[in-house]
Design a protein around this nucleic acid. Structure first.
Lengths: 219, 219
DNA sequence: ACCTGAACACCGTTCAAGT
DNA sequence: ACCTGAACACCGTTCAAGT
């Protein structure tokens, strides 16, 4: 029986719209996010959303920003620079693993805020690592491009995986597909298929980061 | 006045459909490729296309395959393995630079034929380079993911670039955008903006390949 | 076997009209 | 200022009907 006027918690806002969008994207994937589904969930009209957000691209960008920003927490300042890069990269990897649609959008829309944030951190850690001014740009761009490439792959894999199917089953399918190619023409693919079946995406991602760091260190 | 019955060069076929699709994609971009536009260009009904090709995804996949396969020509067999990797990577880079929509699709649909072909070649060259069985899978995947990451970026940049605008102008815009961020919070982005303005995409792509190769060699 | 083209179910986006 | 919801222009895809 509070006498204060009740807070209008149902008022529309960019935050509420983005939160609802993230919910839909996480639950049912990219195709499920329509302005009709979103306005239904928010109990409003489609036009109301357009008053707060420019268009669907801006909506996806905001949702991606939201999810990536949460992943970009700073590690302890005592962390060694190369460890810091691994930590940050893993954070992005895990965020995209949990929200594959964010990976897809990150790849399609570079130069968005999340991207600049990633670039800044990678660059800072590389500088701390002693990378010279001259190679910093190339090294940073190589790392970012690698991270984005994996992000895209992960997003694509998640799209492939039917809801409910587990990772092992999908890997088995892909391995079988690889083995179905002609062994004479694709010997390497054949032998990689074996390793593909029981590899760990996360470990392999880190292995790539380590290769890049080793390459940078050798300069 | 040949008496032979004229060849029906206007008969529909997957090849003609794919060729027309590539034309539309190259000329006017991804959004311009609709079944209506395609059937109009082929002077037929939309349903006719569906008799030859499963759906739009299959159409894009076939168009991508077509464009990437053309880029994957074998270098001379006398080529050193690391040179061969650079040559192949540059071939893909240039193909995607010329057909950005193919880069976008390659990123979205891994495990398609073009991907397997790329993986095979990268793996073969790495083996020739003396890479051990144990690290082959990780090294190959790192290279492929990096190439795909750059492919995605290139595709996105091309989508950003308004038709007619040149690369230099776009780079200037992005650099200006980077400089508009707070210099205290984004010092690295600020200093990279300078190098961004007059960097060469192709050279930077190769620099990344070299970093990866150096990292692999250091194992 | 192959093609036609109208029809269906669905989008993103706009906008006059409301409060 | 903010919301409503019908309307618009446009998709991918299907399918009965043709040849």
């Amino acid at each position: 029986m509070p006498s204060r006027t009740p807070r209008r918690t149902d008022a529309l806002s960019v935050d509420r719209i983005v939160a609802a969008a993230v919910d839909i994207l996480d639950a049912d994937g990219e195709n499920a996010l329509t302005f009709r589904a979103l306005s239904a969930r928010l109990a409003t009209g489609a036009g109301a959303i357009y008053w707060h957000i420019a268009d669907k691209d801006a909506l996806l960008a905001a949702a991606t920003e939201h999810v990536i920003a949460a992943a970009l927490t700073d590690g302890g300042p005592s962390e060694a620079p190369d460890t810091a890069i691994r930590t940050m990269a893993l954070g992005i990897f895990d965020a995209i693993d949990a929200h594959p649609w964010a990976g897809a959008h990150l790849v399609r829309q570079p130069w968005q805020l999340a991207m600049v944030e990633i670039f800044e951190r990678v660059g800072r850690h590389l500088t701390a690592l002693g990378v010279t001014q001259a190679v910093l740009f190339n090294a940073g761009s190589a790392l970012v491009n690698y991270i984005l490439g994996v992000a895209g792959q992960n997003a694509a894999n998640a799209r492939l995986r039917p809801p409910g199917a587990d990772r092992a089953a999908l890997l088995g399918d892909v391995a079988a597909r690889w083995l179905s190619f002609d062994a004479q023409r694709y010997p390497v693919v054949h032998q990689m298929a074996e390793q593909l079946r029981d590899h760990d995406d996360r470990e392999q991602f880190l292995a790539g980061i380590d290769i890049l760091l080793a390459g940078v260190a050798s300069r």
